[in-house]
Amino acid sequence: MSRAVRILLTQRIALLAVLIVAVVVTFFVNDAGGYLTAPYDFDYMSAALITAVPLAMLGLAEMLVILSGRGGIDLSVGAIVSLAGMVFGFAYGEWGWPLWLAILATAGFGALLGAVNGFLVSYIGFPALIATLATFYAYKSLAIVINDQQPISTEPIQELFSISRSVELPLFGEYVPDVPLGIFTFLLPTVVAVWVLLARTAYGRRLYAIGTNDVAARWAGLPVKDTRFKAYVYAGLISGLVAVVTVGQFASARPDAGVSGNGMALPAITIAVLGGVAITGGIGRVAGVVLATLLIVWLNAGILLAFVGNEGSQYQLLALGAVLVFAALLNGLTNRRYGGSAS
């Protein structure tokens, strides 16, 4: 028994899995009791996954920079989404580039914006919070000024909306719900790529090493600056891809897509931390971030049905905040009680 409790407390992935089951069961019970405004079933859960695409991708982007250690964080991801989205709008919507080239250019542009962050943080030595705060302001401003505050929603852009539709899976598709296309075109490739990068390449091992102890890593002869720089480039690259997804979802390249309201950086950092990424660097797994995203997405989807009108979106804030504070306090507790790190 105590062993089970210990696993639950120290293994973030086990805890998240239990929480997801608890959330889903809770809403199924509520649904059966008729307390929800619409049915909470597998079809609804599957449709809700469309919101998981940008969230999980940016969560993975944050994970890469947080892993790199020395206070790594990226406040600018939302602003990169805005600015890269505008570039995509120009390339695909105005200049008529082929889609694959426009996506490639947008991802490359995102990587370039991430490289500015990485250069400032890794080679000049700016604290990551400051450097990305500065670029957040700069990119946000440029995204709005670049097209005189106007969104781009020409015909090709509007037709892009089709990438956020749901599709029937081949072979066994008729037995399971339709799944949003963005899951396969953007999310899964990113998840697999980041997992391979972290778990199956020398770069991944170096990233964990410099995040755990960058002085030791330097004495071991690792290229610390180069490794940290690349983490920010990859984060920018993923943000560039998210920009394409976002333009598709809105059917319009909006200059404030990634920064309106609370922006995208805050939820992304929340997802990463909730997924067990240690803010001090060196600890974190892809599976944790993916499970944290599923937890938040399905929780939010249920909350939306449990309340009438805009109360639902308000209670989503409560849920996100409460879950984050709870997870953070739990991390502190397990670190003290079991000495180890919660991974």
């Binding site: 609370n262 804030l317 409560l318 905040g321 409460a322 953070a328």
Partner: peptide, 11 residues
């Protein structure tokens, strides 16, 4: 913590 409470305060 303050990322978390930011959400709680906004709620």
């Amino acid at each position: 913590i303050t990322f978390g409470t930011a959400n709680l305060f906004m709620f």
